[in-house]
Design a protein around this nucleic acid. Structure first.
Lengths: 98, 98
DNA sequence: TCGTTGTTTCGATAAGATTCAAGACAACAT
DNA sequence: ATGTTGTCTTGAATCTTATCGAAACAACGA
């Protein structure tokens, strides 16, 4: 039950913002459904946006630390980062008062 | 482990957006510190914004369901809504893949 | 080398969010 | 009634974010 530091708050804010868009939520849900990772080209199929827009959303998710990109042969593969989600959930738990 | 409905997603998006601002996070942290509730006039003291801005932020938190207002004598008192936080945390848990 | 495929960056526009001064309201005290 | 105190709403300025076409880049195959 430690105090919340300012740096943490910035990260919390960033993650919250990243989660505050339906397209980005759908990307994350798709990753979950696929067992945690998926290629970028798959995402284009499920989300009705132009490719640069998807790239933009993926970038925001990456910068928040929610997903990580790695090379899989020729293409990129995105993976959910459970650690960040855990940190975020911990913060929310501390927010509750019980 | 049920499927995520569209209505849920809208609520998740709303809560995420409400959490995606440092002033609103500070309001919530203050409520936590105060044991779950605080008067509006207190919030003005701890956040360096004009009164209408604070009213705006409080409204967004209220519309997301994160806090609830009730009359306490002459003044309003705001209370954290743990249920919404629990729902939100549950969604995030389902996002993880383990 | 030349094209093909997958992805990012740039530039411009459109849409949304934040902020505050000013005015409006509501409840209580004098 | 009149004034005071605490809060909300309106309207306008400013800032941020989302979107897409076009251009650029990077990696691979023919």
């Amino acid at each position: 039950m430690g105090a919340v530091k300012i740096q943490d708050l910035k990260q919390i804010e960033k993650v919250s913002k990243a989660l505050g868009d339906k397209h980005r939520l759908n990307i994350l849900l798709h990753l979950t459904k696929k067992g945690g990772c998926a290629a970028c080209s798959e995402i284009i199929d499920i989300i009705d946006l132009a490719q640069p827009s998807i790239s933009h959303h993926v970038k925001i998710l990456t910068e928040a630390g929610l997903i990580e990109a790695e090379k899989e042969g020729r293409n990129l593969k995105y993976t959910l980062n459970n650690n960040i989600l855990d940190d975020y959930i911990n913060f929310l738990e501390r927010l509750k008062n019980d």
